[in-house]
Design a protein around this nucleic acid. Structure first.
Lengths: 386, 386
DNA sequence: CTGTGGGCAACGTGCCGACAA
DNA sequence: TTGTCGGCACGTTGCCCACAG
């Protein structure tokens, strides 16, 4: 019969989830202190609904642009239809916001990219109905059980388990002239079931117990996310703010979903990481930095850039927020799709970091600042605080 | 190439939309006065997220259980993946709530079930890959162009347009012993594209201009609606309340989605219908009534029932709400899945309606009432108001 | 080393009337 | 009147290797 649909009851394999999420995604450990940004949460919803937060949504004057929280629980999920990975986080706002001024030691983040795995972007031949899947030689030798090369031809049956604990069977054969590794029988069933297209990627893992796992990473093709048909985007944005505001005022749990491959940026950051970036890094216009990105081959690469401005992303609704407070330019001309605005904790400054008192951010809120004057103002203030 | 994905730009065919929505669904006209129930809206979200509104979501003391609004705009939609029909409504809360005490004349509701149409629930043979689609004889004769019976065999090419303005081509043939109408070539493409299964229904319309339209109505099989992965159900419920509350306080537009085939009940009701039910119908425990339901064959049928209690569905959060304020029992033993609670405007009382002053509902809110005592209390009050 | 394509066999899809419900 | 089936033709799927990038 069909696989059991008891999503949420089973525990998703963490190693596989992280492999699908990519090398940049790390989740804070349960019980640790984190910083939650409603702005970033809104951005994620804006991507999936294709509608930005409207200007006429209500103001929540008591809601700060960042909330220090305890990460009460975290559950890994995968969409039943698309296999898209996401995480459900339960947050508890800290009752004592002054805690945030205490510098915390770096917490151990759980970002376990598996070692015995490979990831291949599918070619037209891989996804066509004409044939099977061509396994890169090193990949096959690294993660698949060794073939008995005495057979003619060498072949074996592979069983790999996906995020929903569904097993997929493949015939793995080594043949052709020149010899190569192939997945034949079973492969096309997988491709059509997962609706894979050329450009999507498939990944195989061999875990500690020798069990094969497999997952998919879809190409960043234009988000065909349908308009949700459940809730208007306005109500969603309002729901984010109202839920966070209510939770902050009552110090009660609230739940958010984090879609690592959809969200423009992480919006739940380890508190230690946030503090280190905000309080012990001196950022000035003109500063050089590096920032990590994921490559096509799902490895990491650092790009160089320069800070071109410092100031609020949304001075009206979210004054004095560190969310994407840096305007940046990129060295390489292929930087078309890289963000023009980043947050302090996303970059690696090339100047040596130093420790300082927290800059007097609170004093800035007293002044009415023009849209265009903000950068210079903030820059001047930060220079003075030296 | 693939059909243009400009959903929302095209205007959905209203006749087809209503045929897919079913005979019970009617939409108030644009510009008319309506009543919006946040409770009902929450129920719809509860169905799609499979999670009811939690008890610890914030209270909105200024938000009444029903909002009188002007229906500013309405847009018909169909989900790009499932063809599920839904309507986007823009509401403006009325600035003067006293208006609601004025009895309005019945408004003309637009519930245009097409006349030249048929709807067939698909059999196993219809959906199998082995053959085509067997057209009921009367259906074929009513909506399809007449075949030239001089041909051997009589056959023609049909083109039918779906909700997304996509055209589907079918070979319509009259053959076999005994003779019958069939759709052959093109049918299986349609079935697999729409992912139809036995039990789902397909419907064909011939509109005024002779153009063929087709739509689908999926079986009420267990909602495999995935957990949205975008927003937590809590935040959705909060978003509904916060958006409505903010709109009511500022008399500004807000947007909601109505999924007729998913929502347990309509939650945007014509004001005249609401007033007539609330102010001019005397309801007592023991009263007999009829209520309309949709049958398997997508026709309407009335079931008989008895009012067994009157009282708030949620006395804590929504006191003095008319939403599902009637507890009812059903005459037929097959009433397993029919609601135990209905709203005044959903039923047809068997006693003759009469006009009266509005019952003094406001006075009820002063008293703290026990969970179990509420029905008798309310019943006594309403008897006194006679 | 691996992506694509020609060749070809096996299989599934899909059209037909025969039944029978 | 219409749902399901056996029969059969034909188109697609899928396994093989050759070849080239």
């Amino acid at each position: 019969g069909p696989p059991a649909m008891d999503q949420g009851e089973r525990r998703i394999n963490s190693e596989l989830w992280h492999a699908c999420a990519g090398p940049l995604v790390s989740l804070p450990p349960v019980g640790s202190q984190v910083v939650y940004f409603p702005q970033g949460h809104s951005e994620q919803v804006a991507v999936s609904t294709q509608k930005e937060a409207d200007t006429h949504i209500p103001n929540y004057p008591n809601l700060r642009p960042h909330l220090v929280c305890t990460l009460d629980n975290i559950t890994l999920h995968a969409d039943l239809e698309t296999d898209e990975v996401y995480a459900q986080m339960v947050l508890i706002p800290s009752q004592d916001p002054d805690k945030e001024t205490m510098l915390l030691p770096d917490a151990v983040v759980q970002n376990k990219q598996p070692t015995e795995y490979f990831c291949k972007t599918l070619t037209a031949s891989d996804t066509s109905t004409h044939g099977g899947f061509s396994i890169p030689r090193r990949a096959a030798e690294k993660v698949f059980p060794t073939l008995d090369y005495n057979q003619q031809p060498p072949a074996q049956e592979l069983v790999a388990r996906d995020l929903h604990d569904q097993d997929w069977h493949f015939r793995h054969i080594y043949r052709g002239q020149p010899r190569r590794h192939l997945l034949t029988t079973g492969w096309s069933v997988f491709v059509s079931a997962k609706r894979l297209q050329a450009g999507d990627a498939v990944l195989f893992i061999r875990d500690d117990k020798g069990q094969l796992l497999l997952g998919i990473r879809r190409a960043n093709r234009l988000q065909t996310m349908m308009p949700s048909s459940v809730l208007s985007s306005d109500s969603m944005h309002i729901g984010i703010l109202a839920a966070a505001s209510h939770a902050a005022q009552t110090s009660s749990r609230f739940t958010i979903f984090y879609n690592p491959r959809q969200s423009p940026s992480e919006f739940v950051i380890p508190l230690a990481k946030y503090q280190k970036a905000v309080y012990s890094t001196q950022v000035t216009v003109g500063m050089r930095f590096r920032m990590v990105f994921e490559t096509e081959e799902s490895t990491v690469r650092r790009y160089m850039g320069t800070v071109t401005g410092i100031g609020d992303l949304d001075p009206v609704r979210w004054p004095n927020s560190h969310w994407r407070s840096l305007k940046v330019g990129w060295d390489e001309s292929t930087a078309g799709e890289r963000q023009r605005r980043v947050s302090l904790w996303e970059i690696e400054p090339l100047t040596t970091p130093f420790l300082s008192c927290p800059p007097p951010l609170a004093s800035r809120s007293k002044r009415a600042r023009g849209i265009h004057g903000e950068d210079e103002d903030l820059e001047a203030l930060m220079k003075k605080s030296q």
